[in-house]
Design a protein around this nucleic acid. Structure first.
Lengths: 345, 345
DNA sequence: CTCTTGCCTGCATGCGCATGCAATGTTAGG
DNA sequence: CCTAACATTGCATGCGCATGCAGGCAAGAG
């Protein structure tokens, strides 16, 4: 009956202890291995009494189905690769992701991308593990995106959009958010704008910057000075230092994210010895936690992170079930978060 | 020859596209599947010309070995479960981990634990995926630790120690760090100490608190007032508010971590309208990034996170290779980080 | 009472790869 | 030139589970 001896004491060894397999449970329950398998698979028919006996045997032996073996046959790993950039990634992001994944029986394989060259390694790894999908909060090289598409691995981008290729994405309306900020600053009388951008390689940064700049132009304002940051606190301080050296001191600084806005505020207060927002207004973008701290109380645009992540996971799982589904972009509006870092109208 | 038709166009399907297997590569290269397998396994002998032909065929087909199938036979998944607490976890932690894992060909399965009840789910999942080891930066219930030990899954704790069971751990010397802080504060003339602890359930918090309290007592100081926080900014503010209501206003506040110290500083400055450190000194513990921001410049004890994580991974991999290895504790000294949030002697 | 359905169940097999074993070719030593 | 030792290679098999298929059984229809 048995295809092999289940008591050879060698197979299934792991550092000395045998692992319990469905065969062991089957034997103890006096049923076939298939019955055990069916018992742990949803949507299969097992009689109540059989199920009970199997469950009892399983509990007695401490049996847990081997997800690895399972995914070998089902071609579903229940693993989702999450790719984030090392620098300045949102700490709440992974926590939220993990929580939402758990409720969907998905597991999170985390990759961080320090440099673009790492993309090779990451894409290889996630392919080798046959992840069901990829959720990327960072830019991925075109070639790799195409490769994943060819292999039919669904990919959803979080706050990364590509204008030249069709990819699934969930993002926050950057342009709209910046428009809100500029409008309010303008209404309060600000006319000398400065912008602290993120790196040029970041499309989100470019969108936010052009969103702000375009609105300023539309309102008839002067072309703002731009300093380039790197999305970090130190980058924000350095950018502010650069702006301070300019001939015409700005009265409103628009930062491409909250971390840099915080850096700017510290630079303004501690080095330039000016008051925020009396002497200079500062606004950010993101809704990061430290921006809400009392010392900063940033005026910013809060991204609905939870909603966005939930939407991303939904998009992803839908495409895991149906890989042919059309690519889609979902854009959520942010929420104006009014603090005291800017004089507003 | 072939055990099955590799061209049936059905097996290996994934949403329509066939996946490339070692059989396909073997066929194209005119060798056996074993040769392909050996070619992708280190420590096996394949002649240079065979290897070249196989590699060429593999590249042409875009073949990547299936890690799932591999781990089914090797009983090594190259997956390490990382368990972190949702609240107040160190964002740099996961980034550093991910980076160090990549250099060791390990992959990171991330789990976050909101509530202790989730431990069941998490331990089940990581067991089902047959992870090679577990790295936990949060507390795990005794029962689960024992279960993992019985299953011979190596576990290493980061900054969590257990005094009643033998577990592997890497931590920072909390007591020593607090002693340094207290000594310096004492030398500067502080005598009215207050302590902001973390939750009672946190052993790290208890160690830090008793480290500080014991040193104060040893120096002959009065018993400090204690307010309980939750390791968050808001928790720190609330705790400081509670301390401010006490009859005897402290001149030095010792916080169990940096986030709460930041909260305390904001509360002192913004609500109590006092100066830090002129009117009150504040110290933290961790070396968190925001603590180094100009507005706070926390005096704290920096934990050597990189070194600790590296040590943890080393401990873990050593035990993956040799599960019988004795349990071990490695304690690293922190580094006194002097800011301007405290008057020091 | 017989035949048809439908529900459970076991059997056999495959998922993609690693590996022990045997067979082959290769080279060195005598 | 012959034999031993070695380096490669292929074959067969198993890892643990899911699933198509067919057999068995009970209930319902005629």
């Amino acid at each position: 009956m048995a295809r092999r001896a289940t008591t050879d004491g060698k197979a299934g060894t792991r550092g000395g202890g045998r692992t319990v397999t469905s065969y062991d449970v089957a034997q103890r329950a006096g049923v076939s291995q298939s019955a055990v398998s069916r018992c742990f698979t949803t949507g299969t028919s097992v009689s109540p009494q059989t199920r009970e006996r199997i469950m009892k045997a399983a509990a007695a032996l401490g049996y847990q189905p081997n997800a690895i073996a399972r995914s070998l046959t089902t071609k579903r790993s229940n693993l989702v690769a999450v790719v984030v950039a090392n620098l300045g990634f949102n700490p709440e992001l992974t926590a939220t992701l993990s929580r939402l994944f758990a409720s969907r029986d998905l597991n999170l394989l985390l990759f961080t991308l320090d440099h673009e060259e790492d993309a090779d390694r990451v894409v290889n790894q996630l392919w080798q593990y046959r992840v069901d999908g990829v959720l990327s909060a960072t830019h991925l090289p075109r070639g790799h995106i195409e490769q994943l598409a060819k292999r039919r691995v669904p990919v959803v981008f979080l706050n990364r959009v590509y204008d030249d290729i069709a990819v699934n994405s969930v993002c926050c309306d950057q342009v709209e958010g910046e428009r809100w900020l500029v409008d309010r600053l303008w209404a309060a009388g600000h006319r000398r704008f400065a912008i602290v951008s993120g790196p040029d390689s970041s499309l989100v940064s470019r969108q936010r910057v052009s969103g702000a700049r375009d609105r300023i132009a539309a309102l008839g304002g002067d072309e703002p000075a731009v300093a380039i940051g790197d999305f970090t606190y130190d980058g924000g301080r350095a950018a502010m230092r650069a702006l301070a050296a300019e001939a015409r001191r700005p009265d409103a600084v628009i930062c491409a994210n909250d971390m840099m806005a915080i850096g700017c505020i510290d630079e303004i207060r501690l080095e330039m010895k000016l008051k925020v927002p009396k002497d200079m207004s500062v606004v950010g973008f993101d809704g990061a936690a430290p921006g809400r701290w009392g010392s900063y109380a940033l005026t910013s645009v809060r991204q609905p992170v939870d909603v966005m992540i939930e939407a991303a996971i939904d998009m992803l799982t839908a495409r895991v079930d149906n890989p042919a589904m059309a690519t889609e972009k979902r854009v959520f509006s942010g929420e104006l978060q009014i603090g005291v870092s800017a004089r507003l109208g």
